Amino acid sequence: MAREKGRKVVAQNKKARHDYHIEDTYEAGMVLMGTEVKSLRAGRASLADGFVEIDDHEVWLHAVHIPEYTQGTWTNHAARRKRKLLLNRSEIDKLERKVGDKGYTIVPLSLYFKDGRAKVEIALAKGKKSWDKRHAIAERQANREKEQALGRRLKGMD
């Protein structure tokens, strides 16, 4: 069988971009069991409650829901177990320093296959205040109205 090429997205955390200011993103490999990989290939996962924690210079992904593989046997995995992430030592040190600063956290943004290997995109993020969220929504709405007005003007409908 030929090796997979390209990027196939399994799950995205759209709420993370709404709730956090994204400072920096990293791509990390994941240590998975066989049934987890099969479940991911079936396109089943949820990053909604997921978060990343650094413990003893190791990066762990918590609360990501990968449901049990339906054809799995007694070797099936726990759906919400913690999973180890694979990053370079320099990246881990950089993340550890930044998370030590007040207000920073690490959140998963997307879960995907890249050239046949399961990857997770994580982001160093700072939480938004409620007025930041309202400001971002208002800005997005203003841009949408501006684009619509420009489109109407170009079509001669104005």
Rank of each mutant, 00 (worst) to 15 (best):
P108R: 05
S39M: 08
A136K: 10
I137F: 12
K94I: 00
E4N: 13
A48G: 03
G50Y: 03
A123Y: 02
Y104W: 12
G43Q: 11
K133R: 14
D93P: 00
I66H: 02
H18P: 00
D56Y: 06
K14G: 09
D24V: 02
H62D: 04
A42H: 11
H65Y: 13
V37N: 04
L86V: 12
T70I: 09
T105W: 03
K102C: 02
L87S: 04
R152V: 00
L86S: 10
D49T: 09
N143Q: 15
P108Y: 04
H77K: 05
W74L: 12
R44A: 10
R44T: 08
K146W: 10
E147M: 12
E145D: 14
V31M: 10
D19L: 14
R44C: 06
L111Y: 01
E91V: 00
L87Q: 06
L87E: 06
D132Q: 12
E4K: 12
H77C: 06
R3Y: 07
V9P: 10
L124D: 02
K129R: 14
K126C: 07
G156F: 04
M1V: 08
G43F: 08
K82G: 01
V37Y: 06
Y20N: 08
A149H: 10
E96W: 02
Y69W: 14
E68A: 13
V64I: 14
Q148D: 11
L124E: 03
M157G: 00
G6V: 06
R41K: 15
E96P: 00
G50P: 03
R3M: 11
